[in-house]
């Protein structure tokens, strides 16, 4: 990975009176128990992260583990108690309020769990709102907004009010709005958690489609491990404010760092995570007819073996054959659970 787009070093967030002084006084001996004794709530505890350009970085953790607080620290909606947040080599914690407003207007977008649509505005006005705040002329902002609304598949609903839409449609509006200013960094705080399972699935597909077009740098929050596996390039797992493990879905499922992580990964079928490139053999013998990309999962490759196919050619991003995937390897992995 080249230089990370967003870097966060030893970020802390404590809620309560005189948080910074207390943390400085305790130094390295700052455990949650001691902090609680000082009347402080520990929401984020010494988090280090690096998010690469164009990457979907998922932060996964149970409710109350500090995900929302962490993602709000990244845009300084919540003021971190200590640490460094570096975006484009600029330290955000040193930025003035005016600089932060400019950054949020032009470089960052956010999607919220409960949509956070403004009830008194139509869909079009909601999507226009970030541009209106910037002072963009009406014609220009409406043109952009209409494009965004079309992008999320809501043409024809421009004049509806949020309360007239279903949950899934409302979140589409939220997504369109967060993209209106064409941000580089896209934060999504549990965007699909308030939706029904079927709709959630549909929205995840929609999200994957959008990202294949947009190539944003994404921080995506979820409490659903399956969702994390499905969407992530890399995952950080949070517990009690700290990151317990960070890595690709494959690394996490194959090598869980702690029992806590293992409890999540145990139920995940390996074939859904392990990439074809990981289990392929070197390209020996005659080239098979069927081909598959190396970054596809084994589960995605399985249908190609229907009938009596024994091997499939594996290609890299440039279309070169880098190895062969054999029927036996697929079966072994699937039987392993």
């Amino acid at each position: 990975m080249s230089e990370p787009k967003l870097l966060c070093r030893n970020v802390w967030k404590l809620f309560g009176p005189r948080a910074a002084e207390t943390l400085r006084a305790l130094g390295t001996s700052a455990t949650p128990d001691r902090l609680r004794a000082a009347g402080l709530v520990t929401a984020v505890r010494g988090v280090d992260l690096a998010v690469g350009e164009g990457e979907i970085f998922v932060i996964m953790g149970l409710s109350g583990s500090g995900k929302s607080t962490l993602v709000r620290c990244l845009s300084r909606l919540v003021e971190p108690t200590a640490g460094e947040i570096i975006f484009h080599r600029q330290n955000l914690l040193a930025a003035t309020e005016v600089e932060m407003i400019a950054l949020r207007r032009h470089k960052m977008g956010m999607v919220f769990q409960h949509f956070a649509l403004l009830p008194h505005m139509t869909v079009l006005q909601n999507v226009c709102f970030p541009l209106e705040v910037q002072g963009m002329a009406r014609a220009a902002r409406e043109e952009t907004a209409r494009r965004m609304i079309a992008l999320v598949g809501l043409e024809g609903r421009e004049e509806s009010f949020p309360r007239q839409l279903s949950g899934g449609q409302q979140q589409r509006v939220g997504i369109a709005r967060s993209l209106a200013a064409d941000p580089e960094l896209w934060f999504l705080d549990e965007p699909f958690s308030a939706l029904d399972p079927l709709i959630r699935r549909e929205m995840q597909d929609e999200f994957i489609r959008l990202q294949s077009v947009l190539r944003k740098t994404i921080v995506f929050i979820t409490h659903d491990f399956d969702e994390a596996i499905r969407l992530a390039d890399r995952i950080a797992i949070m517990k009690d404010g700290a990151v317990v493990q960070a890595g690709t879905p494959e690394e996490i499922v194959l090598h869980p760092a702690t029992d806590y992580v293992r409890a999540f990964t145990a139920a995940v079928p390996r074939a859904k995570v392990v990439r074809v490139a990981t289990v392929m053999a070197p390209p020996e013998g005659p080239a098979p007819a069927a081909r598959i990309a190396g970054r596809a999962t084994v589960a995605e490759a399985a249908p190609l073996f229907a009938g009596d196919v024994q091997a499939v050619a594996v290609t890299d991003g440039a279309g070169r054959v880098t190895g062969h995937l054999h029927r036996q390897a697929v079966i072994d992995l699937m039987l392993a659970g």
Binding site: L77, L103, M110, L118, P119, M121, F129, P130, Q134
Partner: peptide, 25 residues
């Protein structure tokens, strides 16, 4: 709280946050 966060996230000034987001909501 999310609506307030939204206002700040799109880069509202204090006056915009009050009169365009909080009061109408």
């Amino acid at each position: 709280g999310e609506v307030r966060d939204l206002g700040r996230m799109v880069g509202c000034t204090r006056a915009q946050l009050t009169w365009r987001v909080m009061v109408p909501s």
